[in-house]
C-alpha cells in the first residue's frame, strides 16, 4: 500500500487572517489540521461526527463543524477560530459577555458556543430569544450552562449595539 507521506497534498489556509501552508492527507479534517498541524487547540473535539458543536468555526461568515470539513476543502475560505476573536483592544464582546454572565464551567464546549453566538450576532444584531436558542441548539453543554449562555448572548448583543 502507498505510504502516508506520498499521499499528502499541499493546502493553503486562511485562519484568523493569517496564511498557513500545510501538507495534509486528503482525509484530514479541518479540526485535525487546526489542532494537530497548526497547534490551534482552542477548537475542541467532542464527538468527531457532527453531533455536538464543540469544533465550531466560522467559515466565510457561517458556522461550520470543523470535524465534518476536510482541510483540503477549506482552502479559499476565511476561517475564524476561537483564537482569532480577541483583538488588540481585548476580548470580543461575546467573550466578555460569557464571563460576565458566567456562561461557562469546564470550558470545553465554550469555544464552540462563543463562535455560534458571534456568528449569530454578525448576521443579526438584535436576535430574539428563539433565534438565540436556534443559534446555539447545535452546541451541547454537559455542564448545563444553557440558561446563562442565553443571557450571555443577549448581553453581548447589548454590548455590541452600544458600541
Amino acid at each position: 500500500m502507498a505510504t502516508r507521506e506520498t499521499s499528502k497534498v499541499p493546502v493553503n489556509l486562511d485562519i484568523n487572517g493569517e496564511q498557513y501552508d500545510v501538507l495534509v492527507e486528503p482525509r484530514r479534517t479541518l479540526l485535525d489540521c487546526l489542532r494537530e498541524d497548526l497547534g490551534l487547540t482552542g477548537t475542541k473535539r467532542v464527538c468527531d461526527v457532527g453531533n455536538c458543536g464543540a469544533c465550531t468555526v466560522i467559515a466565510d461568515g457561517r458556522t461550520g463543524y470543523s470535524c465534518l470539513m476536510l482541510a483540503v476543502e477549506s482552502e479559499g475560505l476565511k476561517i475564524t477560530t476561537i483564537e482569532g476573536l480577541a483583538g488588540e483592544d481585548g476580548l470580543h464582546p461575546v467573550q466578555q459577555a460569557f464571563i460576565q454572565e458566567d456562561a461557562l464551567q469546564c470550558g470545553f464546549c465554550t469555544p464552540g458556543q462563543v463562535l455560534s453566538v458571534v456568528s449569530l450576532l454578525e448576521r443579526n444584531s438584535d436576535p430574539s430569544d428563539e433565534e438565540i436558542r436556534l443559534a446555539v441548539s447545535g452546541n451541547l453543554c454537559r455542564c448545563g450552562a444553557y440558561p446563562k449562555i442565553f443571557r450571555a448572548a443577549r448581553t453581548a448583543a447589548q454590548i455590541m449595539s452600544s458600541k
Binding site: 490551534l40 477560530t81 476561537i82 460569557f98 464571563i99 460576565q100 458566567d102 461557562l104 470550558g107
Partner: peptide, 11 residues
C-alpha cells in the same frame, strides 16, 4: 467573576 474564564474563553 471567575479567574478561570479568560483562559477558557480564548481557547
Amino acid at each position: 467573576k471567575r479567574v478561570e474564564d479568560p483562559e477558557f474563553i480564548t481557547g
